[in-house]
Design a protein around this nucleic acid. Structure first.
Length: 847
RNA sequence: GCCGAUGUGGUGAAAUGGUAAACACAGCGGACUUAAAAUCCGCUGGGAGGAAACUCCCUUGCCGGUUCGAGUCCGGCCAUCGGCACCA
């Protein structure tokens, strides 16, 4: 049972946190009562920018801020009665924890992905005698000089994922592209598996789709275009990626990304100035400007021509910023008749547009004719090949295949798959993060020995960014000097690092020998029972769909958290987990079997909660005024867990009143205002009606908890309470049973009332905590009534109802229905054409 | 533009294809009280008819379809929210 662990901010908990936490707490308590061994821990994702920025402002060390915030969060969580196993508390900033974050980095550094698509130790390559450069080019953690997202205000680079609309996700500061030396993680090597292995997971389909789209697989072909002889230039090839090789006959020009390495070589003397100016204008634009100005296509002709391999036509080569260097090959063949972007560009620069796909097959005379015409609209959908030589008449899917074969035969190209996903930029120019266990010597990197972990960050007085891309760690001159000739890596890891594996650490949080013990990992992640850390025998764990059988890929049975982590955290964690799995350190290929997203809680005004709107609800205030149980119950009663929903203090009062009604089932107050056990509470059996209400509640609450329908479970408990409230005498034993059902939701009240009842009726109450009790079983016989109400319809419209013995046969019910005066009236004397009888429900007479 | 989610009373919402609106909130009325609060008990989708008991008609974003029967299934639209967005 896993909650997304919080960043312990200075603001403390907001009411969004306890939403998911209450849900898992209820399920955890429920599962425990059903005999499961439940692991439900909590921890702190405590590295991060706010503490560091606070340090810059005030000089307070981030460790001090973090400790204070963690203490506050802990106090708050404990006040809500969450049954966390605090013995397993983890903190990403604890050296005992980040030692292993650094250790996992070393595994990444010392691994590569082989032809089997799995991670292997780098030592295998060394054994094969590969050179240092060849090995470095394969590592899962590698150094790149590629252009990165540099944010001057934050003084750090950011991952693509952390940049929104050209601004930093944190703070909204402008971000510029600049080349820097950075650590990257080769997540792209896992792109296909990250897509494929979603299949076995019980995640919301929408989240799976979000990840698939993010990874962005597309199938197509690479095509080589010869550069036509152009002045002094020698003939070279430009390779493009296209998803529509079937449209090759319609490629009337080519476009390279402005940064494409071939641009300087192919540009003619006449065009050099224009090309240079364009490149300069593009590179000086920030990402934000580039997207803002993207409405209008821009570009420049290089003066060079390429040969379309399929028809040997000379086609012009342009550069334009609508072609991105980072995707595919950074070059495209433009098919303006069948691609919106190319169409727009060709229209603007008066380039030829040739139709090669039609929505209906056209054969005969037209075939092979090169007609340069301008389609009024651009058809990007599939259709049938026209004006395309040997492809003519073929539907798009077949044309694609045929062209790919043709290209491969002629050595002009081949079928390929491309992914949008880029490698993960893994270094940050910050102080408050895990230092890299890496040193540099003679321009080469190497890892430090495991025995030197954890590598502690240096003690710094001055946390300010240097104002240059030089990280703040550079100020620790002594620390930096690893040896006479070697210096330490100055970057730190991003905040994602610690959260990529915290769920594994929970299994064995205090292990100092290993990131997680072998047995502990197997026991908790697979449900495998032959582990000494397990406290229960195989027999005591009921067979339930909740338990993870070995066939399921995911380890954690249930992971609850917000949608904001749908791609980043969940993708990164899956990637690390797979590497650890390939290397044999963990037992499952996926970290999280079942994922549930809780919906955002809005302010009372229906707006997103924020300080500036002044609509933030502080859980401490709610606990002070209504108690922890009311907060827990209201969070669950608001509506379905996954839904976005607005807060309402009136709603809190509603559940508070419900809890007060439960209290008064057991307790009564005298004239002096002193509460004592109620005289109405007696050692009597519940009557039939109350027994039915109770057993319906046991049944429905159990089912609803399994379905995450906490709101309807609470409704049912309200119904049950209302029934008890209406009874003259309160049957004590039945109320104790009800309290067991209530206890996962409102543990404080339930335990207190049980203790009160125990004092009066020692034999009727539970003699230990309700949380240690077994979930009550319901008696199906108690649910059955002697009579049920049956609805009579005529032509589907409700006309009458009657109480009928449950045992009544179809024929008997039909007879009663036809005998009804109201049914007769609406049948208007016509004969029944058809009579539908649903026993226990309804009769529908069709005339 | 593409993808996804959601549309039900004044409000949060509930309903294995079978009595739409359970349970709450708000509102109204009553009991208790000198009074108020708290508590308890009722009423509470819209329209029409009736003195009343009651009766009929309409109603789950809109339009169609399947079915004896549709909030639920199918097709088409509209609105709101979220994600992606020159990804070739």
């Amino acid at each position: 049972m896993l909650d997304m662990f919080p960043y312990p901010s200075g603001n403390g908990l907001h009411v969004g946190h306890p939403e998911g936490y209450t849900a898992t707490d209820i399920i955890g308590r429920f599962k425990k009562m059903n005999g499961f061994n439940v692991l439900h821990p909590m921890g702190w994702d405590a590295f991060g920018l706010p503490a560091e920025q606070y340090a810059i402002k005030t000089g307070t060390h981030p460790r001090v801020t973090t400790e204070a915030n963690v203490a506050n969060f802990t106090k708050q969580l404990k006040s809500l009665g969450f049954a966390y196993d605090w013995y397993r508390e983890v903190n990403t900033t604890d050296p005992g924890y980040f030692k292993w974050t650094q250790w996992i980095f070393l595994k990444l550094y010392n691994s590569y992905v082989g032809d089997d698509g799995k991670a292997h130790p780098i030592s295998e390559l060394e054994a094969k005698g590969l050179s240092r450069d060849e090995i470095d080019a394969k590592r899962l953690a590698y150094v790149s000089e590629a252009p990165v997202n540099w944010c001057p205000q934050l003084g750090t680079v950011l991952a693509n994922e952390e940049v929104v609309d050209g601004k930093s996700e944190v703070g909204g500061f402008p971000v510029e592209r600049r080349p820097m030396r950075q650590w990257m993680l080769r997540i792209t090597a896992y792109a296909q598996r990250l897509i494929d292995e979603l299949d076995g997971l019980d995640w919301p389909e929408s989240i799976k789709l979000l990840q698939r789209n993010w990874i962005g697989r597309s199938e197509g072909a690479q095509v080589k275009f010869q550069i036509a002889e152009c002045g002094t230039r020698n003939a070279e090839c430009i390779t493009v990626f296209t998803t529509r090789p079937d449209t090759l006959f319609g490629a009337t020009y080519m476009v390279l990304a402005p940064e494409h390495p071939l641009v300087p070589q192919i540009t003619t003397a006449e065009q050099r100035e224009a090309v240079g100016a364009y490149q300069k204008s593009v590179s000086s634009k920030s990402d934000l400007e580039r997207t803002e100005l993207a409405k209008e296509k821009s570009g420049v002709f290089t003066g060079a021509f390429a040969i379309n391999p399929v028809n040997n036509e000379r086609i012009p080569i342009w550069i334009a910023d609508y072609v991105l260097m980072g995707y595919g090959t950074g070059a495209i063949m433009a098919v303006p008749a069948h691609d919106e972007r190319d169409f727009e560009f060709a229209t603007k620069f008066a380039l030829p547009i040739r139709e090669v796909v039609s929505d209906a097959p056209r054969l005969g005379g037209e075939a092979g004719a090169v007609c340069e015409m301008e389609p009024i609209v651009c058809l990007s959908a599939e259709g049938f090949a026209v004006n395309s030589g040997f492809l003519n008449g073929l539907p798009t899917a077949e044309a694609k295949k045929k062209m790919a074969c043709w290209l491969e035969e002629k050595g002009l190209g081949k079928g390929t798959t491309n992914f949008k996903l880029r490698d993960w930029l893994f270094s940050r120019q910050r102080y408050w993060g895990e230092p890299f266990p890496i040193v540099w010597e003679d321009g080469n990197h190497r890892c430090i020995p495991e025995s030197e972990l954890p590598l502690m960050p240096p003690t710094l007085e001055d946390f300010k960014p240097t104002g240059t891309p030089e990280p703040p760690l550079s100020k620790a001159t002594e620390w930096v000097q690893y040896s006479a000739t070697a210096t330490r890596e100055l970057n730190t890891m991003p905040q994602w690092a610690g959260s990529c594996w915290y769920y594994l650490r929970y299994c064995d949080a205090r292990n100092s020998e290993r990131f997680v013990g072998v047995e502990a990992e197997r026991y908790w992640m697979t449900g495998s029972l032959n582990a000494e850390c397990g406290t229960r025998s195989a027999e005591s764990i009921p067979n339930s769909e909740f338990r993870t059988p070995h066939s399921r890929p995911g380890g954690v049975d249930l992971y609850v958290g917000g949608t904001e982590h749908a791609v980043l955290h969940l993708l990164y964690a899956r990637f690390w987990h797979k590497v650890l799995f390939d290397l044999g350190y963990v037992s499952t290929p996926e970290p999280f079997q079942r994922l549930v997203n809780q919906g955002l809680i809005l302010g009372e005004d229906g707006q997103k909660m924020s300080k500036s709107r002044g609509n933030v609800v502080n859980p401490d205030d709610v606990v002070r005024d209504y108690g922890a149980d009311s907060l827990r119950l209201y969070e669950m009663f608001m509506g379905p867990l996954e839904q976005v929903k607005p807060w309402s203090m009136k709603g809190v009062e509603g559940v508070y009143r419900f809890l007060a009604r439960v209290w008064r089932l057991v307790m009564e107050v005298d004239d002096e205002g002193v509460w004592s056990i109620s005289k109405a509470l007696q050692d009597v059996p519940a009557n039939k009606q109350l027994t039915k209400a109770l057993h319906e509640t046991i049944k429905k609450c159990g089912e609803d908890i399994e379905k995450f329908s906490f709101n309807t479970a609470i409704s049912q408990m309200m119904v049950c309470t209302n029934a008890f409230t209406g009874a003259e005498v309160k049957p004590a034993a039945a109320i104790v049973t009800f309290l067991k059902v209530l206890s996962p939701f409102a543990p404080h009240l339930a335990e207190e009332l049980n203790a009160q009842i125990r004092a009066q009726f020692p034999s009727l109450a539970a003699d230990r905590f309700l949380s240690d009790e077994t979930w009550p079983a319901y008696d199906p016989a108690a649910l059955i009534e002697d009579e049920v109400e049956v609805v009579f319809q005529v032509n589907g419209k409700l006309r009458d109802k009657a109480r009928v013995p449950v045992a009544a046969t179809k024929e008997e019910i039909e007879k009663i229905a036809l005998a009804s005066a109201r049914v007769q009236e609406f049948m208007e004397g016509k004969p029944a054409k058809k009579i539908i009888v649903v026993p226990g429900k309804l009769v529908n007479v069709v005339v």
